[in-house]
Simulated scan of single mutants.
Amino acid sequence: MNSKLALAGCLIGAVLGTGTAQAAGPYPDKPVRIVVPYPAGGSTDILTRLLAKGLNKRWGQAVVVDNRGGASGIIGTEVVARADPDGYTLLMNGNGPHTINVSLFDKLPYDPVRDFVPIVRGMTIPLLMVAPANAPYNDVKSFIAWAKANKSTANYCSIGPGSPSHLAGELFKSMAGLPQLTHVPYKGSGPAIMDTIAGTCNVMFDAALSSGPHVKNRKLKLLAIGTEQRDPSWPDTPTVAESGLPGFSAYTWSALFAPAGTPPAIVKKIQQDADAVLRSPELKAALVEQGAQAGGGSSEELARFVDTEIAKWGKVIKDGHITMN
């Protein structure tokens, strides 16, 4: 008798729960949180705040940016992986935590594919291949020739081990056939740039946001762009791919994700509205000032892109015997 009563109670609860869900208003009917796994002030944070402002206008709900930096982006990414899949906690992630860490670390508290639903690409920031202003090479081909002739001393610098800057250098080193090109890691972009300006570093890949101003004031020489196509901000500068290394691409990016299990209708709603905001002239112009290009596109496109990035950088990390453990 007691088991029958318990079953009846469960059935009544299920019916009431269904009724409550159906009675809820359209998404979103309360504030939405977007977690950024980096400290405030960086490019991903700036993008997220611009997107949050646009979504707030479209939804009439507060869209709050929650910075959870630390541990190579792992802390903030895990927060969203464990969040309720209801569309009210989202993640604006970068390529490091989402497609590089999975190969850099033996163990992660999240799986970038299993634990997240892709929503939309947020932005792309080109990596600029820069050199000292007085370097005896002016493009990719002449640098490769110089590095081969000076293989005992030739180097490339990065903003830190396992960073997109480091992996771009490793990819270039491999594709250019420069096995003795020495990697010199720094703790951040600032000191790496200063030593490149000084001539200690022969070349480095760095985000346009930080190295671009030094190119414009002629303290750094721009050899090439790491994106697949030429960047509108540097229309006369060729890509690395068209400079003799076809297939090369290396850049940083950000994209919006939700916890796995988020209802497809909510994912679609977020994707459509975020895509509209990202394509607005105001947001595009604001990102150009940061040296970035606005993203957009479908969830399916982002899912394919993530798979490609994981495989690509996984190979670079494996071939270069790179680890962060």
Rank of each mutant, 00 (worst) to 15 (best):
W146M: 03
V130Y: 03
L128E: 08
V140I: 11
H183S: 13
M123H: 15
M129E: 14
W146V: 05
L181V: 02
R121F: 09
Q180L: 09
P161W: 10
A133P: 06
T153R: 11
P161G: 09
S165N: 11
C157Q: 07
G160N: 13
S152D: 15
P132Q: 12
S152R: 12
P136F: 03
F172S: 09
Y156T: 07
A147G: 10
G162Y: 02
L171Y: 06
S165D: 12
A135Y: 04
F172V: 08
P132L: 09
A131G: 02
N155A: 02
M175F: 14
I159R: 13
K141E: 11
E170D: 02
C157A: 15
S189Y: 14
V184D: 01
R121N: 13
L127F: 15
M123F: 15
I125S: 13
S165W: 05
Q180D: 15
H183F: 05
A135H: 02
K173W: 03
Q180R: 10
T182V: 14
P179E: 12
N134I: 08
P136K: 10
P164F: 04
K187C: 01
V140W: 02
D139Y: 09
S152L: 11
G177F: 08
S152Q: 14
S158G: 12
P126H: 11
N150I: 00
V130A: 02
S163E: 12
Y186C: 10
I144K: 00
K151A: 14
P185G: 10
L167K: 03
P164T: 07
Q180F: 12
K148S: 01
T124E: 15
P191D: 04
P161H: 12
R121M: 14
L171G: 02
L127V: 11
S165H: 10
D139Q: 07
G177I: 09
H166A: 05
F172G: 12
T182R: 15
I125G: 06
R121S: 07
V140E: 01
N155K: 00
P126T: 09
I125L: 11
P161Q: 12
K141H: 05
S189K: 10
C157L: 09
A149S: 14
Y186N: 13
V140H: 03
A135M: 03
G160F: 11
G177H: 10
